[in-house]
Amino acid sequence: MTQLDRSGLTLALMLAGVAGFVDAVAFTTIGQFFVSFMSGNSTRLAVSVAQGAWREVGFAAGLVALFVTGVAAGNIIGARAGRKRTTLLLLVEALLLAAAAVLHAVGRPAAAAPLMVLAMGSANAVFMADGEVRFGVTYMTGALARIGERLAAAATGAGQIHEAMPWLALWIALVVGAVAGAVLALRHGGIVVAAPAVLLLAALLIFGERIRSQSD
Protein backbone atom coordinates (compact mmCIF):
# COMPACT_ATOMS: atom_id res chain seq x y z
CA MET A 1 0.00 0.00 0.00
CA THR A 2 1.07 3.57 -0.53
CA GLN A 3 1.81 5.97 2.32
CA LEU A 4 -1.65 7.49 1.91
CA ASP A 5 -3.16 4.03 2.11
CA ARG A 6 -1.29 3.31 5.34
CA SER A 7 -2.55 6.55 6.87
CA GLY A 8 -6.08 5.38 6.19
CA LEU A 9 -5.56 1.75 7.18
CA THR A 10 -7.40 2.07 10.50
CA LEU A 11 -10.44 3.45 8.70
CA ALA A 12 -10.20 0.69 6.10
CA LEU A 13 -10.03 -1.99 8.79
CA MET A 14 -13.11 -0.53 10.48
CA LEU A 15 -15.05 -0.49 7.21
CA ALA A 16 -13.98 -4.05 6.40
CA GLY A 17 -15.14 -5.18 9.83
CA VAL A 18 -18.46 -3.41 9.31
CA ALA A 19 -18.84 -5.08 5.91
CA GLY A 20 -18.21 -8.52 7.37
CA PHE A 21 -20.66 -7.85 10.20
CA VAL A 22 -23.43 -6.60 7.90
CA ASP A 23 -22.92 -9.38 5.36
CA ALA A 24 -23.16 -12.05 8.07
CA VAL A 25 -26.32 -10.46 9.48
CA ALA A 26 -27.87 -10.47 6.03
CA PHE A 27 -26.80 -14.04 5.32
CA THR A 28 -28.51 -15.29 8.49
CA THR A 29 -31.70 -13.24 8.10
CA ILE A 30 -32.60 -13.08 4.38
CA GLY A 31 -32.19 -16.65 3.23
CA GLN A 32 -28.43 -17.00 2.73
CA PHE A 33 -28.01 -14.13 0.32
CA PHE A 34 -25.29 -11.51 0.63
CA VAL A 35 -25.37 -7.72 0.76
CA SER A 36 -21.63 -7.24 0.31
CA PHE A 37 -20.28 -10.31 -1.51
CA MET A 38 -21.73 -9.96 -5.02
CA SER A 39 -19.75 -12.90 -6.43
CA GLY A 40 -21.70 -15.11 -4.04
CA ASN A 41 -25.00 -13.60 -5.16
CA SER A 42 -24.01 -14.06 -8.79
CA THR A 43 -23.38 -17.75 -8.13
CA ARG A 44 -26.71 -17.99 -6.29
CA LEU A 45 -28.38 -16.39 -9.31
CA ALA A 46 -26.78 -18.87 -11.72
CA VAL A 47 -27.68 -21.91 -9.63
CA SER A 48 -31.23 -20.64 -9.21
CA VAL A 49 -31.55 -20.25 -12.98
CA ALA A 50 -30.46 -23.85 -13.39
CA GLN A 51 -33.03 -24.93 -10.80
CA GLY A 52 -35.80 -22.77 -12.24
CA ALA A 53 -36.13 -20.94 -8.91
CA TRP A 54 -37.17 -17.66 -10.48
CA ARG A 55 -38.03 -15.87 -7.24
CA GLU A 56 -34.46 -16.41 -6.02
CA VAL A 57 -33.14 -15.35 -9.43
CA GLY A 58 -35.00 -12.06 -9.18
CA PHE A 59 -33.91 -11.46 -5.61
CA ALA A 60 -30.23 -12.13 -6.36
CA ALA A 61 -30.33 -9.99 -9.49
CA GLY A 62 -31.96 -7.19 -7.53
CA LEU A 63 -29.24 -7.30 -4.88
CA VAL A 64 -26.51 -7.11 -7.52
CA ALA A 65 -28.23 -4.18 -9.23
CA LEU A 66 -28.65 -2.36 -5.92
CA PHE A 67 -24.99 -2.88 -5.06
CA VAL A 68 -23.95 -1.30 -8.36
CA THR A 69 -26.41 1.52 -7.68
CA GLY A 70 -24.87 2.04 -4.25
CA VAL A 71 -21.37 2.24 -5.70
CA ALA A 72 -22.52 4.73 -8.33
CA ALA A 73 -24.45 6.83 -5.81
CA GLY A 74 -21.50 6.81 -3.41
CA ASN A 75 -19.18 8.09 -6.11
CA ILE A 76 -21.62 10.82 -7.13
CA ILE A 77 -22.01 11.90 -3.50
CA GLY A 78 -18.26 11.78 -2.99
CA ALA A 79 -17.53 13.81 -6.11
CA ARG A 80 -19.94 16.53 -5.04
CA ALA A 81 -18.82 16.55 -1.40
CA GLY A 82 -15.22 17.47 -2.14
CA ARG A 83 -13.07 17.53 1.02
CA LYS A 84 -16.01 16.24 3.06
CA ARG A 85 -16.24 13.13 0.87
CA THR A 86 -15.30 10.55 3.50
CA THR A 87 -17.34 12.15 6.27
CA LEU A 88 -20.47 12.31 4.15
CA LEU A 89 -20.09 8.77 2.81
CA LEU A 90 -19.68 7.34 6.31
CA LEU A 91 -22.75 9.28 7.44
CA VAL A 92 -24.78 7.92 4.53
CA GLU A 93 -23.66 4.36 5.32
CA ALA A 94 -24.54 4.79 9.00
CA LEU A 95 -28.00 6.17 8.25
CA LEU A 96 -28.78 3.38 5.76
CA LEU A 97 -27.78 0.75 8.30
CA ALA A 98 -29.78 2.47 11.04
CA ALA A 99 -32.86 2.47 8.81
CA ALA A 100 -32.27 -1.22 8.03
CA ALA A 101 -32.13 -1.95 11.76
CA VAL A 102 -35.52 -0.29 12.21
CA LEU A 103 -37.01 -2.45 9.46
CA HIS A 104 -35.56 -5.57 11.06
CA ALA A 105 -37.04 -4.48 14.39
CA VAL A 106 -40.54 -4.32 12.88
CA GLY A 107 -40.17 -7.73 11.21
CA ARG A 108 -39.39 -6.69 7.64
CA PRO A 109 -35.95 -8.16 6.86
CA ALA A 110 -36.60 -8.34 3.11
CA ALA A 111 -37.27 -4.61 3.08
CA ALA A 112 -34.10 -4.00 5.08
CA ALA A 113 -31.92 -5.87 2.58
CA PRO A 114 -31.92 -3.14 -0.12
CA LEU A 115 -30.76 -0.54 2.40
CA MET A 116 -27.96 -2.82 3.58
CA VAL A 117 -26.84 -3.43 0.00
CA LEU A 118 -26.84 0.29 -0.80
CA ALA A 119 -24.78 0.91 2.33
CA MET A 120 -22.19 -1.67 1.31
CA GLY A 121 -22.04 -0.36 -2.23
CA SER A 122 -21.51 3.22 -1.12
CA ALA A 123 -18.74 2.17 1.27
CA ASN A 124 -16.56 1.27 -1.71
CA ALA A 125 -16.50 4.93 -2.76
CA VAL A 126 -14.61 5.96 0.39
CA PHE A 127 -11.24 4.87 -1.01
CA MET A 128 -11.84 5.89 -4.60
CA ALA A 129 -8.99 7.75 -6.32
CA ASP A 130 -8.50 8.65 -9.98
CA GLY A 131 -11.62 6.72 -10.93
CA GLU A 132 -10.44 3.46 -9.34
CA VAL A 133 -10.97 1.81 -5.95
CA ARG A 134 -7.54 1.77 -4.26
CA PHE A 135 -8.62 -1.21 -2.17
CA GLY A 136 -12.01 -2.75 -1.57
CA VAL A 137 -13.42 -2.88 1.94
CA THR A 138 -16.54 -4.97 1.29
CA TYR A 139 -14.96 -7.87 -0.61
CA MET A 140 -11.67 -9.64 -0.02
CA THR A 141 -10.84 -11.57 -3.20
CA GLY A 142 -8.59 -8.72 -4.30
CA ALA A 143 -6.93 -8.53 -0.90
CA LEU A 144 -6.22 -12.27 -0.91
CA ALA A 145 -4.76 -11.97 -4.41
CA ARG A 146 -2.51 -9.17 -3.19
CA ILE A 147 -1.32 -11.38 -0.32
CA GLY A 148 -0.37 -14.09 -2.79
CA GLU A 149 1.42 -11.57 -5.01
CA ARG A 150 3.39 -10.14 -2.07
CA LEU A 151 4.34 -13.62 -0.86
CA ALA A 152 5.58 -14.52 -4.33
CA ALA A 153 7.56 -11.28 -4.52
CA ALA A 154 9.13 -12.00 -1.13
CA ALA A 155 10.01 -15.55 -2.18
CA THR A 156 11.75 -14.32 -5.34
CA GLY A 157 13.55 -11.44 -3.67
CA ALA A 158 11.46 -8.79 -5.42
CA GLY A 159 9.73 -7.65 -2.25
CA GLN A 160 9.39 -8.15 1.49
CA ILE A 161 6.89 -10.32 3.29
CA HIS A 162 5.68 -7.49 5.53
CA GLU A 163 4.14 -5.89 2.44
CA ALA A 164 1.41 -8.53 2.64
CA MET A 165 0.44 -7.59 6.19
CA PRO A 166 -1.99 -4.71 5.46
CA TRP A 167 -3.95 -6.92 3.06
CA LEU A 168 -3.97 -9.76 5.58
CA ALA A 169 -5.21 -7.34 8.22
CA LEU A 170 -8.11 -6.31 5.96
CA TRP A 171 -9.13 -9.94 5.49
CA ILE A 172 -8.90 -10.64 9.21
CA ALA A 173 -10.99 -7.54 9.98
CA LEU A 174 -13.75 -8.71 7.64
CA VAL A 175 -13.73 -12.23 9.08
CA VAL A 176 -13.79 -11.00 12.67
CA GLY A 177 -16.64 -8.65 11.83
CA ALA A 178 -18.53 -11.50 10.15
CA VAL A 179 -18.11 -13.76 13.19
CA ALA A 180 -19.46 -11.01 15.46
CA GLY A 181 -22.36 -10.30 13.11
CA ALA A 182 -23.33 -13.95 12.79
CA VAL A 183 -23.16 -14.61 16.53
CA LEU A 184 -25.27 -11.57 17.39
CA ALA A 185 -27.76 -12.04 14.55
CA LEU A 186 -28.38 -15.67 15.46
CA ARG A 187 -29.12 -14.60 19.04
CA HIS A 188 -30.93 -11.30 18.54
CA GLY A 189 -31.97 -11.07 14.90
CA GLY A 190 -31.25 -8.51 12.22
CA ILE A 191 -31.76 -5.55 14.53
CA VAL A 192 -28.09 -5.94 15.50
CA VAL A 193 -27.18 -4.21 12.25
CA ALA A 194 -27.69 -1.08 14.35
CA ALA A 195 -24.32 -1.81 16.00
CA PRO A 196 -22.16 -0.89 12.98
CA ALA A 197 -24.34 2.16 12.40
CA VAL A 198 -23.54 3.34 15.91
CA LEU A 199 -19.86 2.50 15.38
CA LEU A 200 -19.69 4.62 12.23
CA LEU A 201 -21.41 7.57 13.90
CA ALA A 202 -19.11 7.27 16.92
CA ALA A 203 -16.08 7.22 14.62
CA LEU A 204 -17.28 10.42 12.97
CA LEU A 205 -17.64 12.11 16.33
CA ILE A 206 -14.40 10.86 17.86
CA PHE A 207 -12.10 10.88 14.85
CA GLY A 208 -13.81 13.51 12.72
CA GLU A 209 -10.74 15.52 11.78
CA ARG A 210 -8.62 12.44 11.10
CA ILE A 211 -11.35 10.92 8.93
CA ARG A 212 -11.74 14.14 6.97
CA SER A 213 -8.01 14.13 6.32
CA GLN A 214 -8.35 10.88 4.34
CA SER A 215 -10.08 12.87 1.60
CA ASP A 216 -7.15 15.28 1.16
Rank of each mutant, 00 (worst) to 15 (best):
I191P: 02
Q51R: 15
T87F: 00
S122Q: 02
G177Y: 05
L184P: 11
A110V: 14
L103S: 10
M128S: 11
M116H: 05
A12F: 02
A12C: 06
R6Y: 03
F127L: 05
F33L: 14
G40M: 14
T156D: 06
F37E: 12
L97C: 04
M165A: 15
R150S: 01
E56F: 15
F127T: 04
I191H: 14
A24M: 05
V92A: 07
V47C: 13
L144W: 08
A81G: 04
L13I: 01
L170N: 04
T86H: 08
V183C: 01
L66H: 00
A112H: 14
D130L: 11
A173M: 03
G31W: 02
Q51S: 13
T69E: 03
P114K: 07
V198D: 01
L205H: 05
T87V: 13
A182L: 11
L9E: 10
Q160Y: 10
H162F: 14
G107R: 14
V18F: 00
V193G: 03
A203H: 07
L168N: 00
L63F: 05
I76Y: 07
P196E: 02
R134G: 02
V92C: 04
A154G: 08
W171K: 03
G136T: 11
S48N: 12
T28S: 09
S39E: 04
M38R: 15
G121T: 01
V47E: 14
L88E: 09
V25T: 12
L168E: 02
A182W: 05
L89F: 02
G157Q: 10
V137Y: 13
V68H: 14
L170K: 08
A125D: 02
L200I: 10
M1W: 08
R83V: 06
A79R: 09
V64T: 04
P114Y: 13
P196K: 04
F27D: 04
A112M: 11
W167I: 15
F207M: 08
V193S: 03
R55N: 09
M38T: 03
A158G: 15
T86M: 10
G82A: 12
I77S: 08
L88H: 13
S215M: 01
F27G: 09
A169Q: 04
G189F: 04
D216F: 07
T2K: 13
A154H: 06
Q51D: 07
L204G: 05
R85W: 00
V22Q: 06
L199Q: 11
A65D: 00
L205S: 07
E149Q: 15
R150N: 00
F37G: 05
L88N: 11
A26T: 15
G8T: 10
L144S: 09
L168H: 01
A98I: 11
Q3R: 12
F135C: 07
D130W: 13
A61K: 05
A185D: 02
L204T: 02
L200E: 03
L9S: 11
A61N: 08
V176Y: 03
A19T: 05
E209T: 03
M140F: 05
V92H: 00
T141R: 15
G208Y: 07
V49S: 11
A154R: 12
R44D: 03
L13E: 00
G148P: 12
R150A: 08
A111H: 06
W167C: 09
G190K: 13
I161S: 13
P114D: 04
A182I: 09
N41C: 14
V175I: 14
T69C: 07
D130V: 09
A145L: 15
L118M: 03
G148N: 11
L45N: 15
A12M: 06
E149D: 12
A101G: 15
L95W: 00
A65T: 07
